[in-house]
């Protein structure tokens, strides 16, 4: 589904990604772990099409299409979703309005008709219940005055409504208490499907207790240094990132 080959990117004159290789198949959940500043978020943003990054080499295909040739909104409509590490507030713009516009943009791109307002409200209420979100969410502005945990829930809610083929979740677990972590994990797990894939970007092994990954990768210094199954996460937790980084130096 997603194939990243020798991807290199820089921002403000600094090389961040220095040749990333990664292949994610439909039905899989991958976890990308790594220390701060290793390039995890950059990878997520580059895949989503943020323009602040300059691609200096490599290629990315998404379902056989050249992903890097698509604009951010086209990637989203093609089924790529990014759960933001820091979801931004958009004052005065209603949550539901944004989400409906997003869903309709996607449906339009797929040649489908706009979603019926009543159906949409029913859908979103059902998903909100699943995400343990209060009804007040319906009337509030996008992330306006939300707590850190509410913002993350909102990201997952949007994901559930948009049903992406590939979801990249950038530190969706950070800043969550244990109850919220369970809710968010349930949300992600409910989307697991042979037709979809999930890439979890995270610092901590903790999330992987709730969302079991098929593959775990360690990103450090702009490269994937080690890949393995879920036991790699446990080992990392025990031995720390220096173990991997040190291995490379040695």
């Amino acid at each position: 589904m997603l194939k990243i080959t020798d991807l290199r990117a820089r921002v403000a004159g600094r090389d961040i990604l220095k040749g990333v290789n990664l292949e994610v198949n439909a039905g899989e959940v991958h976890a990308i772990m790594g220390p701060n500043g290793s390039g995890k978020s950059t990878l997520a943003q580059v895949l989503a099409g943020r323009e602040d990054y300059e691609i200096t080499g490599g290629s990315v295909t998404f379902e056989g299409r050249d992903l890097l040739a698509l604009r951010a909104e086209e990637r989203a409509r093609a089924g790529l979703f990014l759960g933001f590490q820091y979801p931004v507030e958009i004052p005065g713009v209603n949550n539901v309005y944004l989400l409906k516009a997003a869903l309709n943009a996607k449906r339009k791109a797929a040649g489908e008709s706009e979603v019926d307002a009543y159906e949409f409200l029913a859908l979103i209420k059902q998903k909100m219940k699943f995400m343990h979100m209060s009804e007040s969410f319906l009337t509030r502005g996008v992330n306006e005055g939300f707590s850190g945990g509410e913002k993350k829930r909102n990201e997952v809610l949007q994901m559930l409504v948009l049903e992406p083929k590939l979801a990249i979740l950038d530190e969706t677990d950070s800043g969550l208490d244990i109850d919220a972590l369970k809710v968010v994990s349930n949300g992600v797990n409910s989307l697991r499907d042979p037709q979809r894939a999930v890439v979890l970007v995270t610092h901590y092994q903790r999330l992987l207790d709730y969302i079991e990954p098929d593959r775990v990768h360690v990103l450090s210094g702009g490269r994937i240094l080690k890949s393995g199954d879920k036991s790699l996460a446990k080992e990392l937790e025990r031995r720390g990132y220096d173990w991997v980084a040190g291995a490379e130096v040695a």
């Binding site: 099409g49 989203a76 958009i90 989400l99 997003a102 996008v142």
Partner: peptide, 29 residues
């Protein structure tokens, strides 16, 4: 905000619609 704009784009909303949305929100009151 570039961040606001990118957030909307990432949700599949066109740049034009995104700007309208952000500006309308600003003017809502």
């Amino acid at each position: 905000g570039e961040d606001q704009l990118f957030y909307c784009l990432q949700r599949g909303i066109s740049a034009e619609d995104a700007v309208n949305m952000i500006v309308s929100g600003f003017c809502k009151v």
